[in-house]
Design a protein around this nucleic acid. Structure first.
Length: 294
DNA sequence: AAAACGGGGGC
DNA sequence: GCCCCAGTTTT
């Protein structure tokens, strides 16, 4: 859950998720749609699928992996997560390199190399490994991340209150504000789209996205006008914006009626929206008409 | 190596 | 509006 997601945002999801799926065996046995529903709103949904796949692998193998390489072999576990779990849970001497640590290392060493490059990350990994305190690797890693999250901030580095300012080459040189250097920003794209709310007896019409869809596979979605034969009584409810990575959507939300349920669609009760995986775009559109809906 | 993948929070 | 977040996988 913490991959590319702020800890404060994660906490309520984490608590609900662990209440629902308290251990690997429970998660392994669950239906994927229930796992996604519990994750719905947190984003990066492949993390949820990978976590369940990992739970199944762990259950099948009969034991939780305890070293970097076995952890790394689990689906959804990359270099960061393998290092974090092996060091924090199992005292293994593996330095983590997340966004915070990249920034801290770039500043401590006053290194203006592009952190988007693999070569730079490999270099920073060597620096972090060299700094790691082998007697308490978990504490060291958490301290590095916490330093980046609370003091060595992206925009406003708090050098005056920094406990390691006297070791920091960027602070000495006064370059902390320009570091780290990161290239490769994608061109933003603007996209207009329309969705339709067809409502009857406190239920709305949704369809399930195919399992092989690239994005939001298996999620429930609102219809687009072209998908509704015989759509009539159309009115505009309003519009809103939503950004997904570098795609800027402007959603126009319509309401209307159809003569019969189209193929692939079904009615879902408005008071049951929390039970299904639903994109935030769909939730925002539904909330335009029903402000208190989940 | 670059792009895709969600969503929200801070300024 | 832009940047970034306790990154990983796919192209």
């Amino acid at each position: 859950m913490l991959q590319q997601t702020r800890a404060e945002v994660v906490i309520p999801y984490y608590q609900r998720f662990l209440e629902r799926f308290p251990d690997a065996a429970t998660l392994a046995q669950a239906k994927q749609a229930d796992v996604l529903a519990c994750w719905s709103g947190l984003g990066y949904y492949s993390r949820a699928r990978n976590l369940q796949a990992a739970a199944r692998a762990i259950t099948a193998s009969g034991g939780f992996p305890r070293d970097y390489h076995s952890l790394r072999a689990l689906p959804g576990v990359g270099p960061y997560t393998a290092a974090a779990v092996s060091s924090i849970a199992f005292d293994q001497p593996c330095a983590v390199l997340d966004g915070n640590v990249l920034r801290v290392i770039a500043r401590i060493t006053n290194d203006g190399s592009d952190i988007a490059l693999a070569r730079t990350r490999a270099q920073f990994q060597r620096v972090a490994d060299g700094l790691l305190a082998p007697e308490c690797p978990g504490d060291f890693n958490q301290a590095m991340m916490e330093l980046g999250a609370t003091i060595c901030l992206p925009r406003a580095p708090g050098c005056t209150s920094c406990p390691v300012a006297r070791f920091c080459e960027a602070c000495k040189a006064g370059t902390q504000g320009e570091l780290p250097v990161k290239s490769g920003k994608l061109q933003p794209q603007t996209i207009r789209a329309e969705v339709v709310i067809v409502e009857k007896d406190s239920k709305i019409l949704l369809h399930r996205r195919a399992a092989r869809e690239r994005r939001m596979a298996g999620f429930w979605d609102l219809p687009q006008p072209a998908e509704l034969n015989g759509l009539h009584s159309v009115v505009t409810l309003g519009s809103f914006r939503h950004t997904i990575t570098h795609h800027h959507y402007t959603l126009n939300v319509l309401a209307g009626a159809v003569p019969h349920i189209p193929r692939g669609f079904r009615w879902w009760r408005l008071d049951r929206m929390q039970d299904i995986p639903l994109s935030t775009i769909a939730r925002k559109a539904i909330r335009l008409r029903h402000p208190r809906t989940n």
